[in-house]
Each structure stands twice: as structure tokens, then as C-alpha cells.
Write a protein that binds this DNA or RNA. Structure first.
Lengths: 216, 216, 216, 216
DNA sequence: CAGTAATCGAGACGGTACGTCTGGTCTTCGG
DNA sequence: CCGAAGACCAGACGTACCGTCTCGATTACTG
């Protein structure tokens, strides 16, 4: 909900800035944000089936045609809503120490995937990708790739610092490290507390001989 | 498709065995199988969105009400279809040797998840579980639990044989071993060849000091 | 997912009469009449533009699909509504005396065309026939022909009684007699009082030497 | 189509005549004619339902707002298009002989109403007048009155020449004479050949003792 | 010779209704 | 009682037009 307010409360923000409702010079930013917000809110409140083009239009105070002008399906809208929000809900910290950063990131990722609003959108999009191969491709190139890059970031920084053996396939390592977390959230639905994520990190560190914590 | 034929071509199976079209003697097995088949076929042919109650009814030559009498939603139908087929498409072998059995199972599981018909149904159900928490619970207890038990079987047998250290949390181990495979199929959509599954097995074995394979 | 079904609590109106809401044995008479009524009412209240399929459905408490199942357009609905009502709003009297009956019928017809509810529907249908040739053909065979037959009836009876010269083209005579009335209602929109219709009748009678009233 | 060319082919008409695209001192005649033409063409090609403000704008190469600036509805546009054309498609001849002129005019009127392009527009406008009383009033004062004056012209000239009895109500006589023709075109849709119109004229003449034609 | 005022093409906007599709419910009849 | 058939209410789908609006460019008068 923070989104719309940012622009809606224009008050006397700028001189005569972005006041247009859509004309030859481009679309209405106001309508765009209202749509993204409405989609987001509906997903969180009523679930994926409760997100309909009509519902979004009504809730956003926007004409259906305005939505169809810029997005082709409700999942397309949700994808934009996700891209708008994800940066705020999942940041990558950098303390310069791999074990510390890794533990922090997996904890944050677990929260993002299982508890945040944009995580709910993310899960819905992954689900839709199972149902629709064409959407899957679009989703991967527009959302998932950057998400995986984020997931790899901590390892890459450590590799640059020399904390990891050279020549390591970081993509494969990241998939092996994060995979069980995604699996748990998406498939088994079991809780993902810090104990769970820490165990994954420990296994990773141990695998590369970085520390040998007797976590048990 | 084998399913329906089994019953439809009754020919001279029995005296006048399961010949009823639905009367006071219980539901029609013929109708039940036709429905499951139709749902299955529609999913494979047209994707999840192409599976509708009306479509199933038409394709199965059955009245809509007949479906609603026994199933509540199309995903409910698909779940039954899945349970009917999964046993055939994913078996657990037992050679008595952990590395061998593990490599074989992960290869089979990869094929099952990414290429088999029942795997397609499975993915659709997992997707639906993201969209609908109530369905998720039902799906987990009726389908997923047994799937995870199957995934664990090889490890359990090895543990019984003493090939694995005692006191190991087999559930956690299995999740960590299979997680990246599910992740790859459901999320990244990248191919899951034997090289990929073997690498997962090798990491698992190495983690427990069972072999020290030079990667490659 | 129990849906709140709203059924008119008719109590125990009849034995077990027409209680069905549409099943394999035919359509719901209740729905049919509700639709015709709603269309009629909307036309009278809001004019032709105020008659919409959605509006009819809402007002009739009927699903849009139910309308489209039995009628193709709103004018199709209006045509049925007209056929349902016309008999009540325009009757042909028979006193056995041509001048008397003719004066009475033209007066009734004038009221029907310009002031009755079904006359309003009739005018709307004639208008639509100007806009759509395909509809025009349908309208003429289903409504107009019987209307013109009604318009001719009085003359035909008089001819049978020998009050009119034999061999007269009654169709042409009727068109010439009624034409100016329709013209006045549809085109000029001027009032059609009894003085006006009587003058038409007098001209007709004079044309055939039946009476020679010096009408001023 | 003749219309636009008339102005479009400015060639060397005037010095720098009507070349403006609309500025503070008046509207663009070019746009005006393009709109009227487009409306006319659309009506003839696709029928009344095929005439839309958007369609007119596109076909005329004009912005929607330009249309709304000068006309309020599509029927308003059609009315102007009609006024632009009617004079060319229906002229009143004057030979000085009532029977001759009357026969000629009714023949021309029949062709105008049933076969000409502006007649098609005229019928569409009459139809719209049935649907919309406010439009009806506007249409009658701006189009119909002059049309009825044209219809009366021949009789008026004959009256001035003394060919008709003095004190005759020419309005009523014209309505009674033309009414059946309008009725036939607008309501029954039957063909209006010269035999039909001549018979109307003969009845009129006989009614006033001008000739005594043996009917048929 | 700038400034102003009205026009024009373009097209996004909030809406309404369209005609279609699917979801679930209900009723009737045959076996 | 079950199953086939199919009519029913409900409501979302994606499209077509409606009438309003804002924009930048154009053009003739006005000061």
C-alpha cells in the first residue's frame, strides 16, 4: 500500500509535475501504481483466485481497458507488482564475512519466500509458471534470473575476496545451497526457521572445508 | 490411456461383472475411470487451463453432475488421477548398494518430475497448492507425504543395512539431497540430466565420507 | 462452496405444476415471462437505449446466458414481448356495420400505435427494421403480417357481407386507408385524434360511394 | 463521395482559400466534409450499427474530439450529412400541369425514399426518431418540416393556378396522398413502382373530381 | 513581430454493455 | 439410487465504443 501513497499525496510536491491522466505523452503513472497495488492487495487478501482483472480494475478505480492496454493477463500485472516491490523486501547485506552474510541472507530469503507480501506474489508466479510454459519463459527472464543473481551475490563477493576456492561453479553451488530452502517453502510447506537455514549454510561451509561446526 | 481400455473393452471379462452404468449398487467404475482419464489427457494435451469440469465431462462422456457428485474441483480429479498412475511411473529399486540405488532413483525421479505424464500432473498439483492453502493441506496428506516417503526409502534401507551413520536425520538428509532437484524442475526449469543428479548424489556421499569422487 | 440460491418462495401455489426451473424437458416458463416483462418495462420506462441485455437480466433476476440461450438480440426479446401483449391491446370489433366498425378500429389503432405500451414496442421494432434489413424480414413475417391482417379484417368482413363492391383489392385499399395513420404516428408525430381517423374513414367511404358526408 | 472531392480538389480555386486546418477564426471545412462523407459512406456500407463515432473519426482521418466539438451524436452527424445531400437527390419539377407533376414527384419520392443514399440516411433518422423523442423533435424541425414542405409544393402551385378547389387543407391532402407511400417504404417494405404511385395519384385526382380514371 | 486563442490529430482515461465461457446447483427421466 | 442430459443463476472474460481529457503543433488574428 505504501506505493500509491507515495504518488497519490502529490499535494504541492513539484511545480506541475506528473499530473496528467494519460495522454499522447505516455501513460498515467497514477493508474499504473493503482493497478499494481490493487493486484498486490487482492492477492494477499483473497488469494490467487481472488485476483481478477475486473477486481483489480474496480479496486484500482481504473477501467478494464486501461489494464488490458498495458498488461495481457493478471499474472502479467502481478509480475510488475513483484518487480516493483522485491527490492524493498529482500536486500543483500555485505559485512565482508562469508559465514555471517550467508546466514543472514538465507534467513532473509526464508522470510521473504514464506512470509512477505512480495514473497506471496513470487510463489503465485512460480505456480503459474508450472501451468503455462509460455508464461514460465517470460517469468524466468524478467523475474527469476535477477532473483537467482541475488541469491548468488554473497557467494560471488566471497569468491572475489578469495574466501572460496577458485574455479568453483557458483551457479551450481548456489542452487545446491538454496534449493532445499525453495523446496521446503514451495513443496513441503514446513516452517523455515533460522535453525533450518543455518543447517544449510553449515553443510555448505563444511562441504568446502571452511569451518567444521558441530551444530548437532 | 491404458486405464480406460482396461475396463471399457470388457469383452468377456466376467459373467456380467462390473457392467452397471450406475444404479443402486454403487458408483460406476466405468464413469470413474473415464473421468480420471479425461482429466489426465486434457492436462497433457492442453495444459492446466485446458482442464475444465465441462471439458472433462464432455471428453469422458459423463454428466457434469456425475463429476461433482464424487469430486469437488478439477484439482481434486487430478489428484485421483495422479494417485492412480504414480506407482507405475516411479518405482524404487533395491540393489543393496546405496550409491548405485541413489544414482538410479534420482535419475528416475528426474525423469518422473520433468518428463512423465503423471509428473506433469504432480507439478500442476504443486502449483495449485501455492494458490490455495486448503488444497495444499489436502494435497500434502494425500499425495505428497507418500511421495516424500518414496524419496526417503533408499536412504532408509541403507541405514538399516548400516551403510549410513546411525542417528542421522533421514528426513532432513533427503530434503537436502532432493531439494535441489525439485528446485531445478519447479523453479529454474533447467534440464535435469544424469550429470546433474549424479553430482547431487556425489555431494551427499562425500558429505558423509562414503566416497571421494573426483568431480568429473 | 455452497452458493446462495435465491428461489422465489412460491409456497404451495399449485399441485406440482410448472415448478421446474429448466431441465431436460424444456425451458423455464417463469424465466421466459420475467424476461419479456423486464424488456417491456425497460422500454416504457427508459426508452429503447435503456433496454440492454444486462439490464433485462438484472431486472428479470435471470442470468444473461439464459437470455442468450433463447433470444439472439434485445430486439428479438422485444418481438416476443410484443407478440405476448398485442392481442390484449388491439382487438377487432364486429358490429356488422362497416362505417361503424371502421371508425372504431381506426380509433383503437390510433390509440394502440401512439399511446399503448405494446404500441411503443411496435414502434421500436419498426425503427429497428429500418436499421437492420435482416431483422426487418424476420419482424415482417413474425409480427407485421398478422398486424396487417388485423388491419384488413374489418374490410374483409364487409366484403363478405357484400357491403363493398366485389373484386376490390382489399390489401391495397387497407394500405391506402391506414397508411396516413401510420405515417402520422411514425413520421410527423402529430396527434391522431378521432377527428383525424374519422376523416380517413370518410374519404374511404366516399371513394367507394358508400356515404357522402360533407365533412366540412 | 462527390462531396469531399468538391472541396478537396482545391487546386487553384482561390488565392489561399479554405486551406486552414482549424484555427481561432473558424473550423476546418476540410474536416467537416470528411466527417459528413465518412458517416454517409459508413451508413451505406455497413448499416446504421456500423456507424460509430470512432469509425467516422478513423475513416475521416479526424480526431474524435473534433467530431464532438461540432456534433453531439452520430445521428447529429447523419442529419447534417442528409441536409447536405437531400437537395441533389430530390428535386420538385414544375410543368404547370398538376397530374403530370404529381405523378413525376411521387415517382421521384419513391426512388428517393427507397433507393437513394440520402434516402437511406433519411430512413435511419426516422428510425432514430422513434427511439429518442428529444432527437425526434430536433429532426422534425431541422429536416422533416422542409421535407413535408417539398412534398406539398406541387399541390400548392396547382392551388395557386386554380387547379384545385379553394379552401382545401393542403397539409391534410398531402399527408393523405403521401402517407401510403411512406407507410409502404417504412413499414411493409414492399416495392414502390410507378404503378403504385400512379394509383395513389389517381385516387387523389378522383377524390377531387379532376379526372375519372377507370381503376385498372 | 511576438503573444494569444482557437483549431487540429492523437490517444489515454473511466465507464457501460457486449456476447462468450465456465463454475456449481438443480430437476427430470431411464435403467 | 445412479447417471445422462441440460436448463438455471452467477460472474469473469476480453472487446468495442462511449464521451472526456490533455497534450504539442499549427495558424491567424491581435496588440
Amino acid at each position: 500500500m505504501a506505493r500509491a501513497t507515495r504518488t497519490a499525496g502529490t499535494g504541492g510536491t513539484g511545480p506541475s509535475a506528473t499530473r496528467h491522466h494519460g495522454n499522447r505523452h505516455g501513460r498515467s503513472e497514477q493508474a499504473r501504481l493503482a493497478v499494481l497495488n490493487a493486484a498486490d492487495d487482492l492477492l494477499v487478501e483473497k488469494g490467487f483466485a481472488g485476483v481478477t482483472m475486473e477486481g483489480i480494475a474496480t479496486r484500482a478505480g481504473v477501467a478494464k481497458q486501461t489494464i488490458y492496454r498495458w498488461w495481457s493477463t493478471k499474472t502479467d500485472v502481478l509480475m510488475d507488482a513483484f518487480l516493483q516491490d522485491v527490492a524493498e523486501d529482500l536486500a543483500v547485506r555485505d559485512s565482508g564475512d562469508l559465514p555471517v552474510d550467508l546466514r543472514a541472507y538465507l534467513r532473509d530469503l526464508a522470510w521473504f519466500l514464506s512470509a512477505s507480501d512480495s514473497g506471496a506474489v513470487f510463489r503465485a508466479l512460480i505456480a503459474q509458471a508450472q501451468h503455462d510454459p509460455a508464461f514460465a519463459q517470460d517469468f524466468r527472464s524478467r523475474c527469476l534470473d535477477q532473483q537467482r543473481r541475488r541469491d548468488r551475490r554473497t557467494l560471488e563477493r566471497a569468491a572475489e575476496r578469495g574466501e572460496l576456492p577458485p574455479g568453483l561453479d557458483l551457479v551450481a553451488e548456489a542452487d545446491q545451497l538454496m534449493g532445499p530452502l525453495y523446496y521446503r517453502v514451495l513443496v513441503t510447506g514446513e516452517p523455515v526457521g533460522q535453525d533450518f537455514t543455518d543447517r544449510l549454510v553449515d553443510a555448505f561451509l563444511h562441504r568446502h572445508g571452511l569451518t567444521a561446526p558441530a551444530t548437532g
